[in-house]
Design a binder for these strands. Structure first.
Lengths: 351, 351
DNA sequence: CTGAAAGCGCTTACAG
DNA sequence: CTGAAAGCGCTTACAG
């Protein structure tokens, strides 16, 4: 391993001092440098292959241009991966990088994602978290007390002092269900998971809203045996998921006696992305129409309508808002609309 | 913003020097500290809420305990998200964090993922990349010259001086196809994308191997109009993917006149995860059996057999190998087997 | 327009 | 067993 080239080496070669090198390369226009000196420095830097040490810079400037992302989600669910991608690309375009953190607590009992801020490794934190509940009360107090730039995605915190990006689940569910109702008359059956969360309540309420709007009876609600753990990360190797008995939310849905619970011709609304495909296959119904209250690649093949989750946009919004906070701006709350769409592919078959 | 608590503050309170604080808290057993002093230091640190500054530590120790991950993949494809998850959890358990990098080149013309190493922000780099081709020749030379700890995932580099983790596509395809053939007699039809890569060649060869093994005619190969760009990241907002004309690889598959290209009863082998579901729906065939040469959540519903891609394991292997390199070990090449499995769910229906 | 110097907060040989 | 000091590589007021 060769000796590292430092700013001092460049300075020596250019016949200037390290300060001048810094002013030329970091380009803070606090000092003007003569064109001739600047050229000499740039040449020397290029000749020596100088790459400034960011750890030294961070120590001195007290900023890292890095954002911590607390995400323990099951990334095999494209929703979260897309949000992460939105964050990554936006951060990159704004001169930031993403550091992945877990939500668990480390050695000193401090939550990992807060610790990483206090250790000065990141300038702010985006919390996606392991469930849809959000950070605990202790962590929230630490964030407020230490003034940590902080944005929570899809946590429904309702805390104005914390930054947040949320989805308008209720309006989205209402719109998608209404779209389904507009295509065909029939009873609405709603399939949702077995656990309670603010998100699930909002979606269910939106389905009820749509039935009321249309003047039809409230939905028949079917509770699938799927717990909140389906949302979180793998505690075990997901490799195992695919060789033995299926344990994913999708697989457990098929255990229901679906063709006894719903009738052919029902308008079947599913809380999660991709469920309608499973119900369609499992029941073999030919008259029913389907809606997914979220979407993934497969919704286009099995759901007649679905909610278009703006996951990438949400990731982008998180970064934009966090950077505003890092630069001294206030925390804000953003609520993203969820448009409803018809399946382009199923629509093609109609013609 | 209150003044930051430093090691010196803790030292003052404990009546010792900053050196002692460092020895107590960083615990490098290079110096033994009396039990009584240690307690005083720990108490003072707790009382003051001391969290050591990692940027200072990194500058001094010349290590960051951070791994750069160059990943421009479409994370909506669970394969890559799972690999990332394997990396993240493994890194965490080994005391490392993950910094997301892009593969593009930044300001100084240096590839982003190499730059981040030269800037001393990471101790090593895992390359997943934007396509299955791997880093370019210039980058490889930089890695070798500067001795950058480096592992390439699924790049088929065949360069012994670089660390690598690859999949045994050929054997995997052979095994899955053989499993399909063992279930029913019939012609093998193989559906693959329109671009060439080492990975695609290996899979195709594996399918051919299986036909030869079984003494049946070589597969009928069908080329789907899907280009390599389907593997890479979004240049545009993927939000658009779901509101207009479908542009994903899955959607374009359905544009083929599949029911004219294959016959009901064919053994249909698909190169990518999830394709068999689309072919099954698009053709409506009742006699054919299907295999996916990769798997996702939906393969269990539509493919009779599939390859179980050890993505999580691969991510884990990358981190383990990289850390070994960071600690001075040599680069190694790891080839992961791809087991074939039968769909548990479709198997249930047989009974 | 440029130089000399202090300092960010740690770690770690070097003395005692 | 502990203290005093140097130094990691930058940035940035302060003089000139």
């Amino acid at each position: 391993m060769v000796k590292r080239v430092t700013g001092k080496d460049v300075a020596a070669r250019a016949g200037v001092t390290a300060a001048t090198v810094s002013y030329v390369l970091s380009g803070t226009a606090k000092r003007s440098v003569s064109k001739e000196t600047r050229e000499r420095v740039l040449l020397a830097a290029r000749e020596l292959g100088y790459v400034p040490d960011k750890t030294a810079k961070s120590l001195r400037r007290r900023e890292t241009k890095t954002i911590g992302v607390a995400i323990d989600k099951n990334l095999a669910t494209p929703r979260y991966a897309l949000a992460l991608q939105g964050m990554s690309q936006t951060a990159s375009s704004m001169g930031y990088r993403l550091l992945l953190c877990h939500t668990g607590s480390g050695e000193n009992g401090m939550a990992d994602y807060l610790n990483v801020f206090l250790e000065r490794q990141v300038d702010g934190v985006i919390y996606v978290g392991a469930d849809n509940v959000g950070p605990n009360q202790d962590d929230i107090e630490t964030v407020e007390r230490d003034g940590i730039p902080f944005v929570a995605l899809d946590c429904q915190l309702n805390n104005p002092s914390l930054g947040s990006v949320d989805f308008d689940y209720r309006a989205g569910a209402r719109e998608a269900t209404s779209l389904l109702i507009s295509k065909r008359s029939g009873r609405v059956a709603y399939i949702r998971p077995a656990f309670e969360s603010r998100q699930e309540s909002l979606r269910e309420q939106g389905v009820i809203d749509a039935c009321r709007d249309a003047g039809i009876e409230p939905p028949l609600t079917i509770v699938a045996p799927i717990g909140a753990e389906a949302l979180t990360s793998f505690d075990r190797d997901p490799y195992d998921d695919h060789v033995g008995e299926p344990s994913s939310a999708h697989a457990r849905l098929i255990e229901l006696p679906l063709s006894r619970l719903v009738n052919d011709g029902d308008l079947i609304v599913c809380s999660w992305a991709g469920w309608s495909g499973i119900v369609r296959v499992a029941t073999g119904f030919t008259l029913s129409l389907y809606a997914d209250l979220a979407n993934d690649l497969y919704s286009a093949f099995s759901a007649n309508c679905y909610c278009v989750m703006p996951n990438y946009q949400a990731g982008k919004a998180c970064v934009e808002q966090l950077v505003r906070q890092i630069n001294g701006g206030p925390a804000a709350a953003k609520l993203l609309p969820i448009p409803a769409a018809q399946s382009y592919l199923l629509h093609l078959h109609d013609n």
